[in-house]
Design a protein around this nucleic acid. Structure first.
Length: 256
DNA sequence: ATGGCAATGTTTCATTGA
């Protein structure tokens, strides 16, 4: 099974690239973030023609998440949002796909550590921790995927000294990530030897991508049972190149 | 040096992202 996550930064704009990418990689499950589409406008037909079914939870302009599944994979127990956390922002969708619980998240950005949005991010993450604890109690095989908007370690940041204390790399955010790991989740990317300076997001500005000034903030975290089946995790940085790329690259994990 | 780019709707700018 091949499982991917990708912040597409507008599914409307990125649909041609997504369809080409699906044709090239044939992933079995794809978690999407920042679709920026109301459910009524979700491109179900185009994806069906490409061989994918979709579960979506979206809104106009901002946020929006979806889980795509290839072929006749059995999808059950679709749920939307965090338990016990009232939120108008469409940031979380989960589904069980052939027995694997897939939780797709678009964690709030947080803007800056002194902002209301940062406080919202931390509250959202705390509710996510509770939801994940529940989900892990119910499902042996679970993948928590998405734009988690946290760079967990110095090696996940192009310039850790410059980013120290900044949003995406502040101590409270890294502690959140550590709590998710403490629940029994493993960072699939770090199960394997990886090239140094591998990132998943690069700013559109300042020639950040050609200079490889990026962050690794998109992740596939897996429960221990699923980790034991994990055979690879890679970031498709080539997808950041070319015409109209998303500012995020897809992350792909493969399982036996 | 706090800019730079991209997408969206409220569109000819303001807001947000990370």
């Amino acid at each position: 099974m091949k499982l991917a996550t990708w912040n597409v930064n507008s599914l409307n704009v990125r649909l041609p690239r997504l369809l080409a990418w699906l044709a090239g990689h044939a992933p079995d499950v794809v978690c999407l973030q920042e679709t920026k589409l109301e459910d009524a406008r979700f491109p179900h037909r185009e994806l069906e023609d490409a061989g994918y079914a979709a579960q979506a939870s979206g809104q106009k302009t901002y946020n929006g998440v979806a889980i795509l599944t290839r072929g006749e994979r059995v999808v059950t127990d679709v749920s939307v949002g965090l338990r016990g956390f009232d939120d108008d922002q469409k940031r979380l969708i989960a589904a069980t796909v052939d027995g694997v619980r897939v939780v797709c998240a678009y964690v709030p950005n947080g803007q800056s550590v002194d902002s209301d949005k940062y406080a919202y991010k931390l509250r959202w993450c705390e509710a996510a921790t509770a939801t994940l604890r529940d989900e892990l109690a119910r499902h042996r095989e679970l993948a928590f995927c998405g734009d988690l908007n946290i760079a967990p370690e110095e090696r996940d940041v192009h310039d850790p000294a410059a980013w120290e204390g900044q949003v995406l790399f502040s101590a409270p955010e890294r502690e959140v990530f550590a709590r998710w790991v403490a629940l029994g989740l493993e960072d699939s990317f770090r199960l394997f030897d990886q090239p140094p300076k591998t990132f998943s997001w690069w700013d559109y500005r300042m020639l950040a991508f050609p200079k490889n000034r990026g962050l690794r903030i998109d992740h596939i975290l897996v429960s221990r049972a699923l980790a034991s089946r994990c055979r690879a995790c890679t970031i498709d940085r080539g997808e950041r190149k070319g015409e109209k790329p998303s500012d995020h690259a897809p992350v792909i994990a493969e399982f036996a």
